[in-house]
Structure formats: C-alpha cells, structure tokens
Design a protein around this nucleic acid. Structure first.
Lengths: 196, 196
DNA sequence: CGGATCGTTGATCAACTTCAACGGTCGTGG
DNA sequence: CCACGACCGTTGAAGTTGATCAACGATCCG
C-alpha cells in the first residue's frame, strides 16, 4: 500500500525505525475518506481516534458560552489532529473536528495505539516524541497569545504558516487568532494600504 | 533517602512501576535547595534540567518586546517545571524560571532523562504520559484563553487552583491571566462588593 | 438563476491598558 | 531595633484595542 508512504516517511523523520518496524506500525492505520464539512470528532462523543492527514485540511473548534466558534487547531498534510483531551483521557469531547475540504486521512484507534505502545519500546518512543512536540507547540501558542497583539499574531502566523493562512476561510483564521472576522478584515486592509 | 518518597508516590500514581523500578528511577534525581528569587532557568542559556517541586513554589515567565513580564506557568509541590521548548529541543531558553519562595526540588538532567528512556520501556512510558499530560493541560489553557473573558478566567483559576491564587503575588497572577495588575485589582474588588 | 455563505465597511460600544499618584508592608543596612 | 527605600497592591481618569451591530456586495453552489 503506497497510502502509507507519507506516514512512513513522517515517522522515520522523527525517530529511526527499521523498515520492518515502520511497515508494521503503519499497518495499524486505516485509510478514511472524509467529505468537506464532515465531522470526525464531535462534542459529547469520545474521540476514539487520532488522525494523520494525507490530503486535505481540517479545523478543530469549540463553541463558547456566547455561541461563537473558537478555532483550536488546523491540520493540513503531514499533521496530526483530534480532540487531544478527549483522546488521551477517553472522555467526552468538547471540540468539533471538521474537514475544510474533501480529505484523506489515516486513522488509528485509541485501543490500537495503546496496544502498539505496549508491544514495542520503539513505538512507545515515537508516541512520546509526538506528545512532546504537541506540548512544545501548545506552549509556544500560549506564549504567542500572551505576549503579542492581534496584529502581531496575524503577522506571525502569516509568516510561519502561509500554507494555512492562504487555505482556510477568513472566519476560521480570525477565531484561531482570537479576534472577530470583522477585525481581521480591517487588519488585513490596514496592512495592504500601508505597503503601498 | 526519604527525599524521594514524594517523587516515588507521584510516578506510581501515573504508571504502575515496581518498587525496584521506582527506586532505580528516583536515584537519577538530585536534591537541590533554591533560595527565593533564585533562577533555575534563564533566557539565552539552554535549560539543561527538568525540576520536580518537593517544597516551595516557582514561576516561569517571558519578557515581551514591550518589556512586560508574562507568566507561562506556576509550579508548587508535586508539579514539574522547566522551559519546555528549551528542554525538549535543547535550544536556548526564552523563559526565566524563578523561585517564589525558598524551595526544594528534585532535578534531572536532559542526558540522564534520555538515558533512562533508552534503558527501560517503563521509563519511556512514564515520560510519554508526562508529555501527554503537559500537552493536554496546555490545550486546555489555549481553550480557556480563547473562550473566556479576563473575569471568567480569573474565577476559573481561583476555583480550580486556589492553592496557587492564594500563594503567588498579584502581579504574577495577573500576567498569567493576560491582564495588568491594575485591572486584576479592579476585578477583585468588583467581586467582593458584589458578594455583600 | 436564487439563496446561502463569506468578506467588507462604518458607527458605536465595551473591555482592558496606561499613566500617575498614594498607602502599606517587607526586608535590609546602619 | 529602628528607619528608610524598594516593592506591591489600589484607585481614578483618560486612552486604545478590539467587539458588536447593521448593512452591503461578491461568490459559490445547487
């Protein structure tokens, strides 16, 4: 199955697996086709799976008390996504994870992941590294939110993740930055007219 | 050494170690006494260690471009602290980690941790769980910051972590919540007068 | 072609910051 | 052991950042 080649490359970039180990690892994933606007995680239900994106894009968001959506994470090719708290603790989710486009993902279930981690030290190591990277990434996001203004956060994300900024709808990006779509629109125009 | 009893209890709560494993694990930590206002991590230097707090309290913060301090994390008894991004990737730190009181910590170096993780599957598992919990905690903080107002965040932290709120200086708590100490003071008084 | 969705613009409003001044307390040196 | 300065929390007035509300134009998709 060449569906696994991208995942295989991904895991070997993070930790030195032998070819056999990598193949064995990948066989535990299931290829899933997801249509635009389809949910792969929903509040109230437990997030039973973790997803690796092969093609397409996703958005994880919560709905606050005021009824507004707040984007927690995006995922495009080569990224992982799920409701982290729900998946790790197998509690009911608080997030929606929705496909922004017709997408292709590799799915692994919580039980399968547990079994893999038990089975071999090297798989345990991989998931440890994955968790560390997730934690480090989240820590950087907390710092960004605390130390920068909306405009600076926008500039930063635009520079660092142009692939995402150019691909997701405006309202999704705004709610990721923690601002309204109206204000993002104004920021954007402010920058354009400054440049001229 | 009974200095290790708290750490031993802590790790066994998270993962079933045998008594021998737990003792062997703990022996890799070094007991350090830290005076109030002393730094255990500083910007520019690589965070070579991870710390488990036995007694006392700490505060991790960054200084933004405007020169203000922003608190990223607190740690009291039974918590871990370091500059996560610096420690994991062994890059220069961006944070200060400072003792808020005279404290007692158990320290493990990056090299020792790597060696432990290689040595036995069970140690690898422990650090995987630790990283997962860190990631999950950070994700909850991102959600809190995006979905709640300053006042709601204050109430929430006060309910969930009263031990911290009652122990750290006002300006530290304010900068953790992402507001100024003046505004926190006003929020606090608003609540007091409402209750009467 | 027609409705729903998305981004934009402007006016008004609320949340939070900044600045300045003051009183209390804590720790340190004389 | 006292006195002084530094640090910390508070209060009030004025200023900013970003939200809300409402209206409109463009685009996408059925």
């Amino acid at each position: 199955m060449s569906d696994f080649s991208k995942l295989k490359e991904h895991i070997q970039k993070r930790h030195p697996f032998t070819d056999n180990e990598a193949d064995d690892f990948c066989e535990n994933f299931k290829l899933i086709r997801v249509k635009k606007r389809q949910f792969i995680v929903q509040p109230e239900f437990v997030a039973k799976n973790r997803f690796f994106v092969l093609e397409g894009s996703f958005r994880a968001y919560v709905i606050g008390d005021e009824g507004h959506e707040h984007t927690i994470q995006f995922a495009i090719e080569d990224w992982w996504i799920t409701d982290y708290n729900s998946y790790i603790f197998q509690h009911p989710a608080s997030m929606f994870v929705m496909a922004l486009e017709d997408s292709l993902v590799l799915q692994i279930s919580y039980e399968t992941e547990q079994e893999l981690k038990k089975r071999a030290h090297v798989y345990e190591t991989f998931f440890r590294i994955l968790a560390e990277h997730t934690a480090a990434h989240m820590a950087r996001r907390v710092i960004l939110n605390l130390t920068k203004t909306a405009e600076q956060r926008f500039e930063f994300i635009q520079e660092k993740y142009p692939a995402i900024v150019n691909r997701v709808p405006q309202y999704a990006l705004a709610s990721y930055l923690g601002i309204t779509t109206e204000y993002l629109s104004k920021l954007r125009n402010r920058r354009v007219s400054q440049k001229s």
